[in-house]
Computed example of a mutant assay.
Amino acid sequence: MKHTLIRAALVALLAPALAQADQFQASGGIFNGNDYGTSYAGAGGYTPLSNQALGQVVDGGNNAFDAFGFYNAGTDGLSQTRQVELLSGNVYRFFDTFTNTGSTPITTTLNFFGNLGSDGDELVSVNSAGLIVSCTDDGAGSCTGQPVLALVSGNNGLGQAAITPDRYNVRYTVSLAAGQSLSLLNFAFLASDINGPTADDQALAASTGAQLLAAPRLEGLSEQQIAGIANYTVTPVPEPASWLLAAAGLGLLGLARRRPH
């Protein structure tokens, strides 16, 4: 009995690690104009033909996408630059900066678009402000073999996201004065067991999406880029030098308090 309890406890402790170990690896299907890789940086992603959009993700692993992650409306009068990256842990990040290069203000609705690989209905398990978790519906209320997706569009209400039926759209209504810039940040996380999605993968997608919503992954972005993000409320993280100064100040304060009077 004792050994059984110990074995059960070990299984419970190792279960998350085992689930992670069984996750497939997303592929770097990010289109750069000529080829596909794990990142793209350059001009805006919109072209009239969706299969030529720069920085889009094609496939992405287990047919998760057909053509995902570009703006297909609202960019008239704006210049656009973008960084698209496959981060660790099957997370695609889309960082887009729009600038009003004209001499008059522009108000427009930018549409971030994705054609999902299901070519059919999606089964949506989470649809809250800024987060949609979905998978391909097998017609009986279960996921098929394609990955479960966590699609994250921001935590301050600027983005209005929907899936209808296998097309993901986020509408951002923005106003830019002449010469003004802003940036929009979107994430797509893919969860799938090597043998196909399970209930655990749906839970993993929901928890990872919630984490990205609360604390977006900003590694590799500059302070200036982070400051320009319009669809997230981001709490600045102090630089290491600031932490050192604060620690030194606390140390001096402690010494002063311990010094006899």
Rank of each mutant, 00 (worst) to 15 (best):
H3K: 15
L10S: 08
L13I: 14
L14V: 15
A15C: 04
D22S: 12
F24A: 13
Q25V: 11
S27C: 12
G29C: 02
G29H: 04
F31D: 03
F31Q: 07
F31P: 00
N32I: 05
N32T: 09
N32E: 12
N34K: 13
D35Q: 07
G37S: 10
S39E: 04
S39I: 09
S39P: 02
Y40F: 01
A41R: 04
Y46P: 02
T47F: 13
T47P: 03
T47V: 11
T47I: 09
T47G: 13
N51V: 13
Q52S: 11
Q52C: 12
G55N: 01
Q56W: 08
V58F: 10
V58R: 07
N63H: 09
F65N: 03
F65D: 06
D66T: 15
A67H: 01
F68Q: 08
N72H: 03
N72W: 01
G74M: 00
G74D: 02
Q80N: 06
R82E: 06
L87G: 11
S88D: 15
Y92F: 13
F94K: 04
F94M: 11
D96E: 09
T99R: 06
G102T: 02
P105H: 00
I106M: 11
I106A: 12
T107K: 01
T107L: 01
L110D: 02
F112R: 02
F112Q: 03
F112A: 02
L116T: 08
L116F: 05
D121G: 07
V124K: 10
V126N: 15
N127D: 04
S128M: 14
V133R: 11
S134L: 12
S134C: 14
T136A: 08
S142M: 12
T144C: 15
G145R: 07
L149V: 05
N155V: 10
N156P: 12
A161K: 04
D166Y: 03
R171Y: 12
S175C: 07
L176I: 06
A178F: 00
Q180P: 09
L182I: 10
L185Y: 02
F189P: 00
D193N: 14
D193H: 13
D193W: 11
N195P: 00
A199N: 06
D200Y: 13
D201K: 09
Q202P: 01
Q202V: 13
A205G: 02
A205Q: 01
G209R: 04
L212S: 08
A214N: 03
P216L: 15
L218M: 06
Q225K: 08
I229S: 01
A230T: 14
A230C: 11
N231R: 10
N231L: 11
T233A: 13
T235K: 08
P236K: 11
L245W: 03
A247E: 04
L250F: 01
L250W: 02
G251S: 00
L252D: 01
L253T: 03
L253C: 01
G254V: 05
G254N: 03
A256Y: 00
R257Q: 01
R259N: 07
P260I: 04
H261R: 13
H261N: 12
